[in-house]
């Protein structure tokens, strides 16, 4: 057992070289790699922690929102009920108004139809009255309706001669208006009678379908009429009275 000092020195050098080599190729790379990996793991854990915190915050926010919605559900339902009731009332009011409008329109239509019916009835009555009068005059007195009207008009004109002259003023044309054209003999008679009453006045005959049966004389601003309207009004009054009596009788029977 001996010590070779050359070997000792060489081994010391070898050992120091080995220290450097292992530091260069083993310790540094391994420790640096571990540090880098630990840093990366720490960074990823920090990122994961941040993501988790963000997720937890979002979860808390959503939970609060859900809780808020749950708590306000009763209020929302109440408000919805109120809105529904208001909507229902508005719809009912609108329906009532529409119903009233329809009823008013129906009543107006009924009134129009009643007026039209009354007018038709009036016209039919006039026609019937005229026909009966015409027939009665012809059968009983052998005289036409137009002759009697013309004769009656001339008689009335004579009574109102002064008033007519005042109303006529400077106008020298009298217009005889009838619903139907007058027979020529009646026209001639009227011309003669009017010439006797109003000598300076010329006579012109004209027709107007809207007029009631009879005769209307216009002279300037004056107008004198002999028609069956007054008789028809009397006929209406009689018919209305009869209708009232019939309705009253119907109610009594129903009671």
């Amino acid at each position: 057992m001996s010590i070779d000092w050359f070997t000792v020195i060489a081994q010391i050098v070898n050992f120091l070289v080995l220290v450097w080599l292992l530091k260069r190729f083993l310790y540094r790379p391994i420790l640096d790699g571990i540090d880098a990996r630990e840093n990366e793991i720490a960074e990823r854990m920090n990122d994961a922690t941040m993501v988790r915190r963000t997720a937890e915050a979002a979860e808390a926010e959503f939970r609060a929102e859900i809780e808020s919605l749950r708590s306000s559900r009763g209020d929302l339902l109440k408000e919805a009920h109120q809105q529904a009731e208001a909507e229902r009332d508005a719809l009912l009011a609108e329906a009532r108004k529409q119903l009233e409008r329809d009823l008013a329109a129906r009543q107006a239509q009924n009134a129009t139809e009643a007026r039209r019916y009354t007018a038709d009835l009036h016209r039919a009555g006039a026609e019937a009255l005229l026909a009966l009068t015409r027939k009665a005059l012809l059968d009983l007195a052998d005289e036409s309706f137009e002759h009697r009207i013309a004769a009656h008009a001339v008689t009335r004109l004579a009574a109102a001669n002064d008033d007519l002259k005042k109303a006529a003023g400077d106008n020298r044309e009298a217009v005889v208006l009838t619903r139907d054209p007058l027979p020529s003999d009646v026209r001639a008679q009227l011309e003669r009678d009017l010439a006797a009453v109003l000598p300076d006045v010329t006579v012109r005959f004209d027709t107007e379908p809207a007029l009631a049966p009879g005769l209307t004389l216009r002279l300037g601003g004056a107008q004198v009429a002999w028609t069956v309207d007054s008789y028809l009004d009397g006929l209406d009054a009689v018919l209305a009275d009869r209708a009232r009596q019939a309705r009253a009788q119907g109610f009594t029977d129903a009671a």
Binding site: M1, S2, I3, D4, W5, T7, V8, Q11, F15, L16
Partner: peptide, 12 residues
């Protein structure tokens, strides 16, 4: 197994 080596390490 060499005393020189162990001596060198001990000296180190």
């Amino acid at each position: 197994a060499s005393l020189s080596t162990t001596a060198a390490l001990a000296l180190s």
